[in-house]
Amino acid sequence: MKYTFSKAALTITISLLTIAFASHPKIGSTDDSKSTTLTTVEFVEVLNDNQKEARYYYENNWLQLRIQAKSKNYIKEYNLLETDYSEDGPFHFILITTFADQSQFEAREKNFGELIEAKGALKLLNDTQPKDFRKTVFVKNEAKQLIH
């Protein structure tokens, strides 16, 4: 029997599975009175066959900012995933940033703004600008980890 899924259903399913696996959960209490991690997941499509430009951009900008953010305790963890584009999964990259709690999440703009300012100009493979080689397909903020 062949099953078909809508793009929205597949994207949501992939989002939830990605969050579950990326968070490295431990079995334990789901008591809401304890700190709850919050995760942002972004699905990105590469435009105009600019795979090299997009990969370079994410490895040299997005990833480097997450490494710095984690070392400063601005985030709990991060993950940069690359996947094959398909009709049911119209994206090439999945960007995951997990915050330890609500206060880290709420400070994200200020904290990343500080890191971006210190970092300086974007590192690009060539003159192709990000708007010309990437498009955000879907973003989900504040996904909560159910198992701690």
Score class of each variant (00 low, 15 high):
M1K: 11
M1F: 15
K2D: 11
K2M: 12
Y3G: 02
Y3I: 15
T4A: 06
F5M: 14
F5C: 09
S6E: 01
K7Q: 13
A9D: 09
A9S: 15
T13K: 03
T13M: 06
L17Q: 13
T18F: 02
T18D: 14
I19C: 00
A20W: 14
H24R: 12
K26T: 09
I27G: 00
S29D: 07
S29E: 09
T30I: 01
D31Y: 02
D31M: 01
S33M: 07
S35P: 10
S35A: 11
T37Y: 00
L38R: 08
L38I: 08
L38F: 06
T39D: 05
V41G: 06
V41Y: 07
E42D: 12
E42H: 15
F43Y: 11
F43R: 01
V44K: 00
E45M: 05
V46I: 11
V46Y: 00
L47R: 08
N48S: 00
D49C: 04
D49F: 04
D49H: 11
N50F: 05
N50P: 01
N50A: 15
Q51L: 04
K52E: 15
E53K: 05
Y56K: 10
Y56D: 12
Y58D: 03
Y58Q: 10
N60C: 04
N61L: 07
N61M: 06
W62Q: 05
L63Y: 13
L63G: 01
Q64W: 01
A69N: 08
K70M: 02
K70W: 02
N73P: 13
Y74I: 13
Y74V: 07
Y74R: 10
L80W: 02
L80S: 05
L81V: 04
L81S: 01
E82A: 13
Y85C: 04
Y85D: 14
Y85V: 08
S86L: 04
D88W: 07
G89K: 00
P90E: 01
P90F: 02
F91T: 05
H92C: 04
I94D: 06
L95E: 09
L95I: 00
L95F: 15
I96F: 12
T97H: 13
T98M: 10
T98F: 01
T98W: 02
F99K: 11
Q102T: 10
F105W: 02
E106S: 06
A107W: 01
R108P: 13
E109V: 09
K110N: 00
F112I: 00
F112W: 00
G113I: 15
E114W: 02
E117V: 04
E117Q: 15
A118K: 11
A118W: 03
A118S: 13
G120Q: 12
A121H: 06
L125W: 02
N126K: 03
N126D: 15
N126Y: 04
D127N: 14
T128Q: 11
T128R: 01
Q129D: 05
K131W: 05
K131T: 10
R134H: 08
R134V: 10
K135S: 05
V137H: 05
F138Q: 06
N141K: 11
N141C: 10
A143P: 04
K144P: 03
Q145F: 11
L146V: 06
I147A: 12
I147P: 09
I147C: 14
H148C: 05
